[in-house]
Structure formats: C-alpha cells, structure tokens
Design a protein around this nucleic acid. Structure first.
Lengths: 352, 352
DNA sequence: GCCGATCCTGTGAACGTTAACATTGACGGA
DNA sequence: TCCGTCAATGTTAACGTTCACAGGATCGGC
C-alpha cells in the first residue's frame, strides 16, 4: 500500500496529504509570504513524509531558468585552470547555481563555438569561458551572445565582461624584485604567444625594464608552459652564458617551466641563486619545495572564481543594461630562495 | 516582422514553416525512421532557418531523463582528481551526456550526502563519486541509492560498482623495482591513512617485501600528500640515517611528497640516487624534471574516466539487473634517474 | 478490385511546475 | 451597515516536449 516502490511523489500528492491546493504547496516551496504559518507547517510536514522533491525540469520549463551555469575550460589538468574552476564551482553553489562543465582538448574558434552550442542546448542561464588564449578570446568576441557570457582571462574583449588576474602587475613585481636585488637587467623566458597571459607578462617585463632604464634583452625563448620546454629554454640559457653573455637574473613565465630551467642549470653545474636568480609565476604547491624553493608570483584563483560568478550573475539579472565590467584580481610576489643579490651573497633581502 | 527579437522558435513554429505537424518535427529531431526523406529535409531546413533548438527542460519533463550526470569530487586542484575529472568529462560528452560537478572542500559523510542530495535536486540520471577516502566510501555505501552511482577509487563497496586504478600492482612494481636493484629492503612514506589509495599502496609494499623475504620496516611517516609533509618525512629519514639506520631505498606514496623528500635529502647533503633511491607515485607532469628525474608509477586517468562513465551508463540502462562490476585500470612503472643499484653505481638498469 | 500490412503523418493527452486571475473571509473606516 | 482592502487560498491555463493512438496512403498479392 505504501508508495515506496511507485514513482516519486509530485506536488499534487503533497497537496492532497496536507489538505491544500498544489498552488499553496508551490507557495511554501518558493517562500511566498502569504501563507498562514500553520498551513506552511502542515505542508512542510507532508513534504517530509512523502520525501517530496520538486521536479526541476517542470520548474525550468515554466520559469525559463535552469539555475545552471556553463563553464568552458581548457586543460583543467593544469594548476591554474583547475584552481579557477574550483573557485567558480564553490561560488556558484553558494549562489544556488549548478555548474555544467565542458573541457576542451584543443582550443580553436570552432571548438569554443561548439562548446557554447553544447551548453546552449542544455539551456544554461549563463556561461563562463576560461579563455586564456587569443584564439579563444577572439572566437568568443565574434560569437553572438545568446546568453550572458563572461570571459576569464579573456583579453580586452571590447563589449564583453572580463575577469582576470593582474598579470601585468605580477610580472612587473617579479621584474622589479630582480632589479632591486641589483641585477643589471632581467631576462625572460616567455609562454606561448597565443596566450594572453604570456603576452601580458612579457609586456610588463619589458615595460618595467624600460622604466628602470635597464637594457632590454630579447626574449630568451618561448616555451609551452611545460617543464620540458623550460628545460630546453634553460639549456639555451646555459649556452648563451657559456658564450659570454652576462645573464644573472631570469623571469620565467610560469613555475613549471621554471622547474625545467632549474634542472637545466643544475645539470650545467650552475647554482641558483648564486649564479642565476630565477623568478616564476603561479605559485603551484610544488614551488616551495623546488631546489631551491622558488620565488614566484601568486594568483588568487579563488577570488577569480568568485568574481566571475559575481559578474555573470549581475549580467543575468539585468541583461545588457550596465556596461560590461572588467574586474581585475591582484597578484602578489612570494619571495623564496631562488633569487639573491647580483654579487651572489646568500641573502634574498633586497634591503641588504 | 521578423522574429529576431521575439522569443526563440519552438517546435510548433518549425512545424508551421515546414507545413507538417509538430509530431513530425519531433520525429525528425529524434531520428525516427518513418519519415519521408523529402519531409525530413523540409523540416531540417525550417529548423535551420528559424535557428530552432529544442527545449531540454520540456524534453526532460516528459522523458524523465535529463541527460546529465553528476560528479562529486574532492580537491580537484590535485593532479589525480583533476585528471580523473577530465577523463570523465571527455567520456561523458562523447556519450552525449552533460556533466554537473560538485567539488567538496571537506569530505565527510555529511558533505557527501549533501552533495548527492544537491545533484538529486537537479535530477541527474546518475552520479560518479570520486571517493578516495574511507569516509567518503563508507558514506556512499550507507546511502540509499535513489539514482545509479559508481564510485571511483571507492574501496570494496560490497554492492556498489567501483572503478579504480590497480594501486596494489603499481605499488608492488615500485617496491619490486627497488628490490631488483639490490636494495636489502625498501622503506615507505605513506599517504594519509584515511585514503584508500594510501592504504592499498602501503599494503602492497608490505606484501611485496614479505614475498621477497625482505625485512619489513615500519612506515617511516604518514604524510598528507603535500610536498611539505614529504619534506618533513624526508628530514625524519635523514635523522634516522644519521642514527645509523641503513636506509637506501624509499617508496614514497606520491610524487609531491617525493619532491619534498628530495629537497630534504639534498639539504642534508645526501645524493639521490647514490645515497638513497626514491620512487614516487602518480607521474605528475613535473616529475620528469625533478632533480633528479623521478622514477614513479603512472596511472591511466583517462581510462579511469572512460570506464567510470561506461559502468555508470550500463547501470542506467538496466538498473540493478547485473551484479555491480568492479573495474580495475592498470598502473605502470616509469623508471627515471632517482633509483639506482644499491652499491651506488649511476646506472638505473637492474640487469647490470 | 479487394485486403491486410506497412509506411507516413496528424491529433490529443500527458509530464509537473509556476503565473495569472478568481474567490473567500476578516477587518476597519465611513 | 456597507464597502473597500488585504491576506489566504483555490482554479485554470500556460510552458514545449514526447507518447499513444488513430487515420490515410501506398503497396504487394491474389
């Protein structure tokens, strides 16, 4: 006789049990004010007794809101994207939204557009695109916005909201730190030029050197973020030093590549920081335990995620009324032992 | 006159434009065979012209299928979970399913149960729980299964399908590798004992020593997977060596901790692998560029993800008819330069 | 030329919720 | 006393699909 094995209870069942109409049940569910406390309580009890859960599809059908946000990401295996995603998910759940995710293997205009299509099919209420590459940012800018979209690290999309870390400030701090230590100039191992972050870091490095009146060497090498490419860049660095080039300080565009550089230098018998000072970018959990522990720039991914959700929800609330905001999250220099004064003393204190 | 600014087209609009009934449109959309090719084409054209997309909520309402799978994960910032998640997402999308994700900050019976509730509210068709901890696995086992669930790394849940990496085989290979190099015995730095993987690796390490007739030292230390905890374990190792203990080979439960160990050993003036051989577990991208490059065990996360989805879809198809499967994905030893023969020669070739 | 089978298409009714509007009392001021 | 207001509740109609069923062609076989 019990309904344990039959299909789950619906609103009408609850209504019957509580002796009210289904609409009253709906009102209780949606915290509508005009319900007598006593009635509300009765409905609540009926809901509990029947283990009723409202059907989200039916609700979405009539409200035209799925309460779901889409996220398009690229290589969520990397520390940065993974952390950003995590931050986004936390913030979304807190705001009562579900997160539906699409991870791209390759990032092209086509794949980005397909991902958005895919999410549109699920009728998400809004989309966050983690688009650190020029291709992705451009693809995004070109797309007609059927739903609200915010880009994370998405360059200067003219009329699209963007949330990003202050790459330039981070890179400037890294470069300035090395200059403050007395290095005549700072070399740079850059990330792939398709990446906006790589470009921003390189530009800020150049500008900082320029502002300090220091020599502006060419980019030593363009890596692909991987430790391997850092290793190769490191070997090139070693060669150029052997050829007489005066390289004492290097700003590497991310920590993983910095790891490869450290390894190449060690193999060549060079000591970090005595012979060469190294600064990375990202502050991955491993960086503190590299040999030596890496001076690097930390990005606040949690804030990035929170702000993305914040901006997106704003967009959803009042679609297109306000101008698209551009939110910048700070980055901070973390000084460890891979940097020292140019004369090779052990201290890492720039004031010494 | 155009409907560009009005609300999006629905099936009836398409039907009208194609001169058919809405039901025929539905048939075209669902690849129903009994539609004249010519009609089908006409409908297709109308769909394109109106940029029609079917409403997934309405569809879900009547089919009782959302085509969405839930994933409950813990700390998706770690390489392992992030990779697993990536694999799951790829496989799901290929199978035509959406992925809705919940990342837990803390993993308790309560938080797991809440996450499942949360996903149930979204009426997902099934759930994958990445539950590498005993707490999670037990919470999962205790929960009544409203929807099909598969556990990834979920221990021996008696009547719940489980997909996992062959931790034991991986750990055994690591230990045996060190024994084959001539080490009298192998020490172990374990992961947190709440984690099933940590336990499996430790047990397999013990069993391998036992089978080889080697001495079975106590676990050197229990870390928490972090480089820092590995560093601390490494210092303890150094102390015990200084106290005269004969420690020449260590199997560390993951790569990040192994990194910390490497650092502690280097600080103490010990050389890896000359003084101590180290094997890790996970093969994170950085491992190849540690100093020295780390011998480790690689897990096939992509296969893990694919299989999870496969098993889950099977469960959804015929709920509870077949016995819950247990799928094991292989792990493979990757030999690099952090291990060598006991007499300290440089070679890493066990046959030498 | 008829008949059943098969292919194609249309009609009407779900699915379970919320929105819009209607109804009922109770209350207070004129 | 009467009427307007407001709080509490009920009634009915969407929302946009798919499902079940019904019908009209078409075809092959006799």
């Amino acid at each position: 006789m019990s309904d344990s094995k039959t299909r789950p209870a619906v609103m009408a069942d609850v209504a019957r049990r509580a002796g009210v109409s289904h609409q009253t049940v709906s009102r209780v569910l949606n915290d509508h004010p005009n319900v007598r406390p006593e009635t509300r309580e009765r409905v609540r009890r009926a809901i509990d007794e029947l283990a009723y859960r409202r059907n989200s599809s039916a609700r979405a059908l009539v409200t035209r809101r799925t309460n779901t946000l889409g996220v398009v990401a690229f290589d969520t295996t990397l520390y940065g994207p993974a952390s950003t995603l995590f931050g986004i998910e936390q913030a979304a759940r807190e705001a009562g939204y579900f997160i539906s995710i699409v991870s791209l293997k390759t990032i092209t205009a086509k794949s980005v557009s397909e991902a958005l299509d895919y999410l549109a099919e699920q009728s998400v209420d809004g989309v966050i695109v983690i688009a650190p590459q020029r291709t992705a940012a451009e693809a995004l800018a070109a797309l007609p916005a059927a739903v609200p979209v915010v880009a994370v690290e998405g360059g200067q999309a003219p009329d699209r909201p963007v949330v990003c870390v202050d790459q330039r400030a981070g890179a400037a701090a890294a470069t300035q730190h090395l200059l403050d230590l007395g290095h005549r100039t700072v070399w740079h191992i850059a990330g792939p030029m398709d990446w906006l972050e790589a470009e921003a870091r390189r530009d800020a490095w150049r500008d900082t050197l320029s502002a300090a009146g220091a020599a502006q060497p060419d980019v030593l090498s363009h890596g692909d973020w991987s430790p391997r490419s850092g290793y190769e860049a490191g070997r090139r660095l070693v060669e150029r030093r052997a050829a007489g080039e005066d390289i004492t300080a290097v700003f590497v565009a991310n920590d993983q590549m910095a790891l490869g550089v450290l390894r190449a230098l060690r193999e060549a018998g060079l000591d970090v920081p005595r012979d060469v000072s190294i600064v990375g970018f990202d502050d991955i959990p491993e960086s503190e335990f590299f040999s030596p522990p890496l001076t690097t720039v930390r990005q606040d991914f949690a804030a990035l995620g929170r702000n993305s959700i914040g901006v997106l929800l704003d967009q959803i609330e009042d679609a297109g009324s306000r101008p698209p905001p551009r939110v910048v999250v700070p980055a901070s220099l973390i000084v460890r032992s891979s940097t020292t004064t140019v004369d090779g003393r052990e201290s890492t204190d720039p004031s010494e």
